[in-house]
């Protein structure tokens, strides 16, 4: 079974909600996940983020939906790590 263990996303978001709230919304979509968020660029109304998410079985669709719900927009998936986990 192929599981996504790590994602690196390039995301554009409005200044509000704050990054802490944004990270929390993403983390809420993947139990036990670790979310690292870095602001790469700040504009008048938006900011560009690099989001690194690590977890045991990440679901990209759920994460993208969380990003969109918070007003963000996924620009690109810059990195992905997957693992072929042996099914029991």
């Amino acid at each position: 079974m192929i599981q996504i263990k790590r994602l690196v996303l390039d995301v554009l978001k409005p200044h509000q909600p704050y990054v802490s709230e944004f990270a929390r919304a993403i983390a809420s979509k993947a139990e036990g996940s670790y979310v690292k968020l870095k602001v790469l660029e700040m504009d008048d109304k938006t900011e560009t983020l690099e989001i690194i998410i690590e977890g045991s079985d990440l679901e990209l669709d759920a994460i993208v939906s969380a990003i969109n719900e918070m007003g963000g927009s996924l620009h690109s998936v810059d990195g992905v790590e997957v693992m072929n986990v042996k099914e029991e």
């Binding site: 409005p14 509000q16 109304k45 969109n68 719900e69 918070m70 007003g71």
Partner: peptide
Amino acid sequence: KKLQDAMVSDLSGSAQD
């Protein structure tokens, strides 16, 4: 509307909307 223009995307249904 200004925010949507800055984001260059449709924010319908988002928290901002």
